[in-house]
């Protein structure tokens, strides 16, 4: 299988300088390497501030990596010719978290969905109309919505509009940046099912970002767990959810599955500051398994077999529990 996108040792840092002020440097991403195979979904999980969005901004070419390289179908994106660059931008699309701010309130739904096609300048009006109609049908929007404005729709419908806009050019890769976090539970399922159906049909590649490990697990084939700008665990969905090896992954999964407050474990510590980086493992301050080695030596991402990578000194010595089961069966009842 070929990789649509590959990140090789990508670093990103921002410097903060000012008049008569000491220049400080924040390393937001550290040594990120990821591959996304064609037709599969990569899930990025982590708390806010872990670098999920910065990674995708790099892929969308809104930011340039400080170090490291980005490959699109095996070609370095920095060296793309003008034509391929254009193709790249058409082929990589994004759906944002908040459909209330990602749609222009003064444009009609039809115009919003058609805009990517209009910009390319390759299609005539009839063709554009035809494609808008067919994509709207695919994502479950009625045809007469074309003339309406985004303000007339609910969150779920707006997210469908945003998805239609991202899909209209038949992109290779769609980046889904928390597409369901702003939606209600009853609508969330509809959108998730839609995304899955589209992928099964069109073989689209997804990068799915979320802080909720259950939603990520639903769609993803591989998952990268991010913490403080590094990947701490990376592997197949089954490996990450059922055979996890990193304490942070355990914390993410278990805090999502607690049903009784007395079950919740007392924890201390916060995410460290990027301007004042701790020595050793960035998670050591919050980790209940931390040893002296953890506090002094930064762990590297190591392969522990079958492409399952973990950045933890104690990965082999500690036993972690998983509470999530993957049960890919069709629902029995439909409401």
């Amino acid at each position: 299988m070929s990789n649509v996108i590959e990140l090789k040792n990508v670093d990103k840092s921002y410097t903060n300088s000012g008049f008569l002020k000491k220049t400080t440097c924040a390393h937001i991403l550290k040594n990120i390497s990821l591959q996304v195979e064609k037709g599969t979904t990569l899930g990025l999980v982590g708390e806010s501030g872990s670098g999920k969005t910065t990674t995708t901004r790099m892929i969308l070419r809104q930011e340039k990596p400080t170090n490291g390289e980005l490959f699109y179908e095996g070609k370095n994106v920095e060296e793309l010719t003008k034509e391929v660059e254009e193709e790249y931008r058409n082929n990589v699309q994004v759906v944002f978290q908040n459909p209330y701010s990602s749609l222009n309130p003064k444009m009609r739904v039809g115009e919003i969905i058609a805009e990517p096609l209009v910009i390319t300048g390759k299609y005539n009006k009839e063709e554009i109309k035809k494609r808008v109609r067919s994509i709207m049908e695919k994502v479950g929007l009625a045809q007469d919505y074309v003339e309406r404005f985004p303000s007339e729709f609910s969150g779920g419908q707006r997210q469908r509009i945003a998805i239609a806009r991202a899909l209209i050019q038949n992109p290779q890769l769609v980046i889904l940046d928390e597409p369901v976090s702003a939606l209600d539970v009853s609508v969330r399922g509809q959108i998730m099912n839609l995304l899955k159906r589209v992928q099964e049909k069109n073989k689209t590649t997804y990068i799915f970002i979320s802080h909720d490990i259950a939603t990520v697990g639903f769609l993803s084939d591989t998952i990268a767990v991010m913490y403080f700008g590094t990947i701490v665990e990376y592997g197949k969905t089954e490996d990450i959810l059922e055979n996890l090896r990193h304490p942070y992954t355990e914390m993410l999964i278990s805090s999502d599955s607690v049903r009784n407050l007395s079950e919740a474990e007392e924890e201390s510590g916060e995410i460290p500051s990027h301007y004042d980086e701790p020595k050793g493992c960035p998670f050591a301050g919050r980790c209940k398994y931390a040893t002296d080695e953890c506090r002094n030596v930064t762990p590297q991402l190591k392969d522990i077999g079958d492409g399952h990578k973990v950045a933890c000194h104690n990965a082999e010595s500690i036993t972690l529990k998983s509470v999530v089961k993957i049960n890919r069966r069709k629902p029995e009842y439909q409401i």
Binding site: S186, Q190, G217, F218, V324, N327, R328, I335
Partner: peptide, 11 residues
């Protein structure tokens, strides 16, 4: 919290 093939929804 288990992962299914499809989400249950309210139409």
């Amino acid at each position: 919290g288990n992962i299914r093939e499809r989400y249950e929804t309210i139409d």
